[in-house]
Design a binder for these strands. Structure first.
Lengths: 215, 215, 215, 215
DNA sequence: CATGAATGAGACTTCATTCAT
DNA sequence: TATGAATGAAGTCTCATTCAT
């Protein structure tokens, strides 16, 4: 079941150090776990499944991970930053266009990775994970908020909206978008969502100005 | 464990019908399930836990439900409509105030019931349940959309936003609000959220007009 | 669920004494047990099934029988003699015809009653029952043997066969016949079996004599 | 619990292949099942019993068998042919002696194996098994019948008996013998049974001829 | 007496984890 | 180091039996 590499060139030295192999195996396991968690859910997936799917024996699984949960944590650590929506730069181009592009990229990436789908199942089971996630969210919110504050100081935002709430709303949209596209029969339209977000952030006349400046 | 009723009318006939007791027990089980699902997650909760928590034997659980999943379904059927956000009436009062009140009521109710928290865990496991939920969401989206179309015809909405997307955005906010309050250290502020929603729906001058008309 | 009798003539006195009713219920239960045991096997049949099939509540079952096994014993006690093959009278008519008639009657009766089919399942579980059965068989064997001895003294049997073994063989045929008819595609033929039995018991010339005497 | 082999050849390589051990454990389970089924009956025996009796944990049982029934099937597949009575060769020696020897060997083997005792309990529960058995019986009957037909053509059988019924009768005796020895207090006497069978098959004068020819 | 809800022991089965090879 | 057989705790579910109504 092992032995799939090391036959690429003739005469090869024992050039692939064991740590690399080990890392590869570890990775194969994580990847296998990711697929199965997404496909069948976390608790529906057994350690044996993960090992089999990675092409190793169950014993090997336990050599690399203390248990299923730890594999999951590793999965997260590896990919957490992929989950984090990028912070938009509001003033270096047409915000609507920038946002639409960012949204599309982010949603697509989330869908590729897919782990966000198992999160809800896990939070009650794993307070530590939960902690990590909440922390990540809090940071994200701070970053959003401070970037909004910057453009507020430039007088670009609505005067009558609470920026904290604006940041929260935008995050809500950005985070939950891809899971909740079954509402309408229409395809999700990134440009339209971008418009809505811009409306929450900028008064229309400001937006026009920004669009003209850079367009 | 038994003995909780039989004090309804004077005379004390042997009249407490069996069905009443049975229904009460069934209810105790559902309630017990609800609590434990919310507290520990669905797959973390065993049938035995639910029975014990309801103060009955495991056999009793299986008298009323074929299994854990069926209990969950019953729970849903009983409370699905409680989960559905109410449809706001946009033009019979200050929309911001109306919305804030609705939001507060809805969020509080969701938090009391709490099942929405297990939903994401369940959807991959129970396609039937998933179906029900998606359907409910679709209907809700339609209702929102058509109510927005009405006020659009009255010329009250932004001309440049796609109403379908607006409806989607509002639902996103309304549905996910209570779960995601860990972002900021501030308390969730219904009035501010209401303002943001109103901004997405109404141009400011329209909103002012609506507020003055009824205020 | 009860109340099915006592409406036969007008003005009727409370004339059906309880014991009769009780006996009827008891009987209904035994009968119900018999059917279900035969259809589904003993251990496949639950006390609840038996009660339901008899149209009474499970509590009633336990009023009449201490448990399933006791019901079975009662069933046996009631019907044991029906299971016992009749002892043929060898010399009062054509033995082949007499035997064929007896066999047919016996096999048919066994099939109607049907309990012989659950016996094998029960013997390991219920040594007491087992005891009863072995005893019944032993008696039957004795009866057969002594009846064979009588005709032996009249010089009607083979001289070179051990009568004990002859009796054993005949019982083997008589007892197992109806269960083992799947061997051949042909219908079971009582007359032919009777002939075989007669061949074991009587030398042909004796048989002819007996047939002529009475025919 | 482990350690029972590894002494086959000198040198003691780490050469006992896992499959051998596994097969041994599988066998231990089957054997354990056989004993318990015979002693306590099929439905009285639990998977746990079987595992414990084989000296392994319950999980090990389920590694080798999907459930109790499957173990039983394996047991059958392994030993079905042992259950099948051998076909006698009627004319190559004194039939009585040959038969007595065959009967003794067959009965003893049946008693050693013992599974025939659980058969009757199983047939109603397991139609598939039932099918296998009926088929085996039908084949056996055919074989018997055709061997009888052969000696019939040689003029060695009774003219007035139906060979189909003769075959059926012989099988009845051969199959049920060992279970039903409780009839009489005497030991079962193979020679006497053989005599009875011969009487059903051969007219006495033919038998004498056969005995003299080869004796 | 009849009822059937309630009980809980115990059977069945899965799976995370260990450990000898 | 890799393997996978073995383990047994823990969950699911059934059913004989009791007992309040």
């Amino acid at each position: 079941m092992p032995d799939k590499e090391k036959n690429q060139l003739a005469g090869e030295f024992p050039f692939v150090p064991q740590q690399v192999r080990a890392q590869q195996k570890r990775h194969a396991l994580i990847e296998s776990g990711r697929c199965l968690f997404i496909k069948n859910g976390y608790s529906q997936t057994t350690a044996k499944d993960i090992a089999a799917n990675a092409g190793v024996a169950i014993g090997t699984f336990y050599r690399y991970f203390s248990d299923k949960r730890q594999l999951l944590r590793s999965l997260f650590e590896e990919q957490l930053e992929m989950l984090i929506p990028p912070e938009p730069s509001w003033v270096h181009g047409d915000p609507e266009i920038l946002l639409a592009a960012l949204l599309e990229k982010h949603y697509k990436r989330l869908d590729e990775i897919g782990i966000h789908r198992v999160l809800p199942e896990l939070l009650p089971k794993d307070p530590e994970l939960s902690e990590i996630l909440i922390e990540a969210r809090r940071k994200l919110h701070s970053k959003f908020l401070s970037s909004l504050r910057q453009i507020e100081e430039m007088g670009l935002t609505w005067k009558d909206l609470d920026l904290d709430t604006v940041a929260w709303t935008v995050l809500m949209i950005v985070e939950n978008g891809p899971q909740k596209t079954e509402y309408s029969d229409n395809e999700i339209n990134y440009a339209e969502i971008a418009k809505v977000i811009c409306r929450i952030v900028f008064p229309p006349e400001i937006l026009v100005r920004l669009q003209n400046k850079e367009g």
